[in-house]
Design a protein around this nucleic acid. Structure first.
Length: 599
RNA sequence: GCCUCAGUAGCUCAGUUGGAUAGAGCAACCGCCUUCUAAGCGGUAGGUCACAGGUUCGAAUCCUGUCUGGGGUACCA
């Protein structure tokens, strides 16, 4: 990590220079003011740092400060530093580049670090109702969440991914009602029930998939018989509790399994699937949480309901916990659930949730409940994602409004897993995402994932061609490979920075050298990108980075031939290709996107 | 009304602890395949960073206000 080394040298120089800087007190907050950046103008060196922020502390002019610090820098050749205004400009030597490249070759996984090693994170995301197919918005949370899990782990965090199944509450009743009436419709159609039975015009869940669930239920003859019998015994067979429970359980299982299958297809993995009904209601943990809340004096009864004094924690109004009909609101089991998260044996110190922006107003009351229960609200973190707009025929459509809505499965079928995942995380979660189905499905060149995958495949192709005999263009005879596979392998295993000299020396055009240097510095900076992506929960840093590397590689490919008649030179250049290929593969893996060896 | 996200090139978006001349992809235009994959490369053009103030040596970035758009503001989840 060249950047880190420069920052260390700067810190040492600053300590040494302090007496000449009006006895500046050098501490962590001062040192963190050094921001190393890559200047656009090559005359400003390869890395630059602005020291103007020290002007206030030292009461000195920035150019003077830069002069003083540069005089104290050690381990840097004077010709590699320049001072322009308040800037210190560093020139990166080929020796440093070679060292960085060799380090990438030797490390098993690029970008691996321990910046989040003290974090024990429970990440909950997607958490859909098992009342229908996942929609495109769920796809964003799925891609985002799984990428964040992978990125956090690459930074050393202990992470558990969890899916909360909302299988209790009124929505489950709604899907049960809907499945019931679709079944009645189907039975009427085949004459098993009289035509006189009336089906409501509007069902809570109008989607066509509901009828599929009903048909699947009725496909078992004994179930169909039970359904008809229950119908004969009750005016409204939904009053038959046994049937209702069976329909509910059946619907949940079928719909949940469909969600799980799709998420599996998307390579989105959860360690835990927590059922609201089984984990919270059946084990009766909600009551215990409510008692503790009440014992602390944070609840009261009014208008036949039980309320939580969330206003004491900054919420705009108090919230109902138990409705006047005796049932809980959504909030109540969710409070118990979050209470449980804090109490797990894993001793998590970060309870992280990904929620859609439509749940924004829900945060203060949940945070309040967490605090009321004696947990540290600072360990509760919500990553809010703006919603996804579906664009069909160039028009925005609101999800769920249409009877036949486009599901996540439809999208994946059209554009594939890789493109879906890459697209979904390629923009900041703070921005609403436009998902243009026609565009994503038709225009492959418009989708950056192919650009990155192609760069990876191109690296693999070069590495393959290097060690395989190929037919001569003119004679058709098989010629010897550019390098021997065994020789290349041992060259790579025993690679020293010195052995890379040919890679840098063989390029004579300054422009080509600049491309090579930019490429190596980019590869060297992968760890920084991985750290930032974890710290800010921002996988789009990775997509951006991968596109940068790919672009820089394609440029380099254009100006420098890798496979040459000189084995020594070829080997050295192949090490660069290996480093690029490793980094691209690692970056794609952090996003859960495949890195094809051929395209 | 209040809370919140956004407003940057024709379009979609990067730009996170404030730093040198604001970037990328797509679209447009001009070039480049006898050679390791043209799903590629080089070049041209394209900007009042919504607007107005403020803080600062310095603002797309921080503060205040205004405008526009998304989301929320349930005893739904």
């Amino acid at each position: 990590m060249i950047r880190h080394r420069i920052l260390e040298q700067l810190a040492a120089a600053l300590h040494k220079a302090a007496p000449n800087l009006n006895n500046l007190a050098v501490d962590e907050s001062v040192l963190s003011g050094f921001k190393l950046e890559r200047p656009r103008n090559p005359e400003h060196g390869d890395y630059a740092v602005n020291v103007s922020f020290l002007a206030r502390h030292t009461k000195m002019a920035p150019p003077k400060i830069a002069e003083v610090i540069s005089a104290c820098l050690e381990g840097v050749r004077p010709e590699d530093i320049s001072v322009i205004g308040g800037y210190l400009n560093f020139k990166i030597t080929e020796a440093m580049l070679a060292e960085a490249l060799a380090a990438i070759i030797h490390v098993e996984k690029t970008g691996l670090n321990d910046s989040q090693a003290d974090k024990r994170i429970l990440l909950e995301y997607v958490s859909a109702n098992p009342t229908g197919p996942l929609h495109i918005g769920h796809g964003r949370w799925a891609a985002l969440g799984d990428a964040i899990v992978r990125i956090l782990r690459h930074n050393g965090a202990f992470v558990t991914a969890e899916f909360y199944i909302n299988d209790a509450g009124v929505q489950m009743g709604n899907i049960t009602t809907s499945v019931y009436w679709r079944a009645v419709e189907l039975l009427k159609a085949k004459g098993a029930l009289p035509k006189s039975v009336e089906v409501p015009d509007v069902l809570p869940y109008p989607g066509e998939y509901v009828a599929d669930v009903s048909a699947l239920y009725l496909s078992d003859e004994s179930r169909e018989q039970r359904f008809i019998a229950a119908h004969a015994n009750h005016a409204d067979a939904l009053a038959d509790e046994a049937l209702q429970a069976e329909l509910k359980a059946f619907s949940k299982t079928v719909l949940l399994e469909a969600q799980q299958a799709l998420l599996g297809n998307l390579r989105v993995h959860f360690e835990n699937w927590i059922s609201e009904k089984e984990y919270l209601y059946d084990r009766d943990v909600i009551g215990g949480t409510l008692e503790r809340l009440s014992a602390q004096g944070y609840t009261y009864e009014a208008e036949d309901a039980l309320w939580f004094k969330s206003t004491e924690f900054g919420d705009e109004k108090d919230r109902v916990l138990r409705k006047s009909d005796g049932s809980f609101t959504y909030l109540t089991p969710d409070i118990a659930y979050h209470d449980d998260k804090f109490n797990r044996a894993e001793r998590y110190n970060c309870i992280l949730n990904i929620w859609g922006a439509d749940h924004h107003g829900y945060i203060p009351r949940m945070r309040g409940a967490i605090e009321a229960l004696g947990h540290d609200p600072n360990q509760f973190e919500v990553l809010l994602g703006q919603l996804v707009n579906l664009i069909v025929d160039g028009e925005r459509t609101r999800m769920g409004k249409r009877r036949k809505m486009l599901t996540l499965q439809d999208v994946v079928d059209e554009v594939g897993v890789d493109a879906t995942r890459f697209w979904m995380v390629s923009k900041s979660a703070d921005s609403a995402l436009d998902f243009d189905v026609d565009l994503a499905a038709s225009a492959s060149s418009e989708n950056p994932v192919f650009y990155v995958q192609y760069a990876h495949a191109r690296c693999c192709s070069i590495l393959r061609n290097a060690v395989e005999p190929a037919p001569n263009v003119d004679t058709g005879e098989m010629t010897a490979p550019f390098v021997q596979a065994d020789a290349l392998k041992s060259f790579e295993a025993g690679l020293t920075p010195h052995a890379l000299a040919l890679l840098f020396d063989s390029l004579t055009e300054p422009r080509d050298q600049a491309v090579l240097k930019a490429l190596v510095l980019l590869l060297d900076g992968f760890e920084d990108t991985v750290r930032d992506a974890a710290r800010l929960r921002a996988p789009h840093f990775i997509t951006q980075y991968l596109q940068d590397v790919s672009s820089q590689f394609h440029s380099f490919y254009g100006v420098c031939r890798i496979l040459t008649p000189e084995p020594a030179l070829t080997q050295a250049r192949l090490m660069l290709i290996r480093a690029i290929q490793k980094t691209l593969a690692q970056g794609l893996d952090l996003l859960g996107v495949s890195a094809p060896e051929k395209m």
